[in-house]
Design a protein around this nucleic acid. Structure first.
Length: 647
RNA sequence: CGCGGAGUAGAGCAAUCCGGUAGCUCGUCGGGCUCAUAACCCGGAGGUUGUAGGUUCAAAUCCUAUCUCCGCAACCA
């Protein structure tokens, strides 16, 4: 029985590097919602994928010494593998380098251009010829180029713009008329007050500074702005085509909800709706900006070897435990945190003790007292029974309320609270005591039946969150009545029906032992990282490339903090020339001026000057990244003369 | 004074909009039970709600100041 269609998407993941566990939250969250909707009978289409264009990827690929395409193929593969490992049921995995997507995006761009909503204009500014850079009047320093201090002249560069201004009123009306469009509420105010009401400026939607993108169809010098490219995936994946869309598109668009991180709400609630309005297509019904998963103790960093990846965690604890943790630990509005000790704690207390033990003890008792088959009886009810049944029905209702507002953690909690109610029911009814008296057999049978039926409720309710566990529970109670509709009333579990064998669902974890293992693993990873990993994959250069870098010994004569900058120190160096050299360095966190004055360092003397927080920096001093959060300047012997060339 | 978020029991969070006995989970301590995975059930201890003022009969909640932490931006040449 279908309740209608439900189209749900994640943001597509940027293929800059392998995602850690925090990045994996979104796909699990979306999967839980998708599974829940399917369970309820919706015709669900669940889309995820990867965003593979842009300057950053171009740069990463260069650093790795491979082509952008080879780079994104590798990372997209890793991302997809993690989605699969997390047992997510996406219906389609789109890549923005897919041929059909690129073609459709070009058509979209063309259509908007033909319609006049994208227009060619000029990016105006002050141009510095030697630096090949544009500057706005406010960036200029005394009317000169802030980079080199040279003359600038007014110049124009052509670019394509999207007419956001035209749709401002229409967007504002849509947001105000559709209360739930931007969710949660707080983000809606943020968008309206900060961006829309002050007035939208037309958006520059093409780039000429790099090539790794989809070319503008009628102007090969430009590539399409990555956000136009990326956002379009929600419709190109369904076969949207300005000249006539496919069946999937007709069936599923508009999206019922876009699940995205809170940092990209702006793109999804301003640019995206306007693109759709310009195309004449309906707008998504809702955009949910979820919070981020942060890291409790230390910051994760490769060099410490403590980056938590979803697949490693799955190896350690099992997929469902990871899903359970992500879904139950993340608050609805605030950022959540993750540590190994909280994962283990939750695993033991919720999964092993509350849930696993409940299933185990119930089935064990059924086997022990009735050989696994509960005889039909006349349902000897007791005072505790209505409370249990009410709790079951309440859990279904509460979970549903929470799921529809995307309070996933609360929905999970509602289900686990019911498991606790079952444990309490066992203590109240004391089956072991009933078993001692033959006259109580009927009552005992009723109690165990109620428990088995309750466990069936749990199996169904847990399906969206822990699909494998739900399946295992169903097997142990030997029951395939698992539809959502079967929760309409208490008592669908068949009478006189054999249960399976009790097998622990989750083995308790010895926290100390596991922490020791993890630490050992991290040490190993950190050691490996320091010696090899950073060096592997770096593109090789020739001696002539190196010769371009001019390194000199210099003495730090003076050092002051830079105003308005947290990380910068301004150094004055004696590099052997007559002229003192000023260099800005981002080491304020680790060094005080007094630590540096009088010391000798190595300076890259022929680096193009740059202005940082108002300070003109001519060159840079060498320093080592000792770990993610520790930097040490390379000091050299004081006997080296200032200005000596280092090679 | 760049923008924003957050400071509540040992830990993680709720209550804050719209003032009215500060709740929940984990841990801890005590008790109970013995079907079960040292599990389960009950109870206790633990908080002058970051700090200082103010408004009020009454402040975690409203106002002012201040400190700290975290994102973003800027910036790590």
């Amino acid at each position: 029985m279908s309740k209608g269609k439900f189209y749900i998407t994640t943001a597509i993941a940027y293929t800059s590097r392998k995602p850690h566990i925090g990045n994996s939250y979104e796909i699990v969250l979306t999967d839980a919602i998708a599974r829940y909707k399917r369970l309820q009978g919706y015709d669900v289409f669940f889309l995820t994928g990867t965003d593979e264009h842009g300057q950053k990827i171009d740069e990463y690929a260069k650093a790795a010494g491979v082509s952008p395409k080879a780079y994104v193929d590798k990372v997209a593969g890793e991302i997809r593998a993690i989605c699969d490992r997390l047992n997510t049921t996406y219906d389609k995995f789109i890549r923005t380098t897919d041929d059909y997507h690129e073609k459709a995006v070009q058509k979209i761009f063309q259509k908007l251009y033909d319609k006049g909503d994208i227009y060619k204009s000029e990016y105006e500014g002050m141009y510095c010829t030697p630096c090949e850079s544009f500057w706005t009047p406010s960036q200029l320093k005394d009317g000169k180029c802030p980079d080199c201090g040279g003359e600038v002249h007014p110049a124009k560069e052509e670019a394509y713009f999207l007419r956001l201004s035209k749709y401002q009123k229409q967007l504002e009306d849509y947001i105000e008329q559709n209360e739930n469009f931007i969710y949660p509420e707080s983000r809606k105010k943020e968008m309206l007050n900060n961006f829309i009401k002050p007035g939208l400026q037309d958006l520059c939607v093409s780039r000429t500074s790099f090539k790794w993108g989809i070319p503008v169809p009628f102007d090969g010098d430009h590539v399409i702005y990555v956000w136009i490219d990326a956002l379009s995936n929600y419709i190109t994946a369904l076969g949207y085509d300005p000249d006539g869309s496919g069946e999937l598109y007709k069936k599923y668009w508009p999206a019922d909800v876009h699940i995205i991180g809170k940092d990209i709400v702006r793109f999804h609630t301003i640019y995206w709706p306007i693109i759709l309005m310009a195309l004449g297509e309906p707008l998504p019904k809702q955009v949910y900006g979820h919070p981020w998963l942060l890291f409790g103790e230390d910051k994760m960093s490769k060099s410490k070897g403590n980056v938590i990846y979803a697949d490693d965690l799955c190896d350690l604890l099992g997929v469902d435990a990871v899903r359970y943790y992500l879904l139950s630990e993340m608050p609805h509005a605030n950022d959540g945190s993750i540590t190994y000790s909280t994962i283990i704690e939750r695993f033991n207390s919720d999964l092993a003790n509350t849930l696993g033990n409940l299933v185990n003890r119930t089935i064990a008792m059924t086997q022990k007292y009735f050989g696994g088959v509960l005889p039909v009886n006349d349902q000897c009810d007791d005072a505790f029974d209505p409370a249990l049944k009410d709790a079951a029905m309440a859990a279904v209702q509460k979970a549903d309320d929470c799921m529809t507002t995307y309070h996933i953690a609360d929905a999970v909690e509602a289900v686990m609270n019911f498991a606790k109610a079952c444990n309490k029911y066992i203590d109240q009814t004391m089956p072991w005591s009933l078993a001692k008296c033959e006259a109580q057999k009927g009552r005992l049978s009723t109690v165990l039946y109620n428990l088995t039926e309750s466990i069936r409720f749990l199996a169904v309710l847990l399906t969206p969150f822990m699909p494998e566990t739900a399946k295992k529970i169903a097997e142990q109670i030997n029951c395939d009545i698992l539809s959502y509709d079967s929760l309409a009333c208490f008592g669908a579990y068949p009478l006189n029906h054999p249960v399976g064998t009790p097998t622990p669902l989750f083995a308790r974890i010895d926290a100390e032992k596991m922490m020791a293992e993890i630490e050992a693993k991290q040490k190993k990873a950190a050691a490996k990282e320091k010696t090899f990993a950073e060096i592997e994959g770096i593109a090789q250069i020739g001696i002539d490339d190196f010769a371009k870098v001019d390194l000199r010994v210099a003495e730090i004569k003076d050092c002051v903090p830079v105003k308005r900058a947290k990380k910068l120190l301004q150094l004055t160096l004696d590099d052997g020339t007559q002229k003192p050299r000023t260099v800005a360095s981002g080491i304020a966190k680790w060094y005080k001026p007094d630590d540096l004055i009088g010391k000798k360092v190595i300076v890259v003397s022929n680096l193009k000057p740059a202005v940082l927080c108002g300070v003109e920096s001519c060159g840079m001093i060498l320093a080592a990244d000792c770990s993610e959060d520790d930097v040490k300047v390379v000091f050299v012997d004081s006997s080296m003369p200032n200005g000596a060339k280092v090679r």
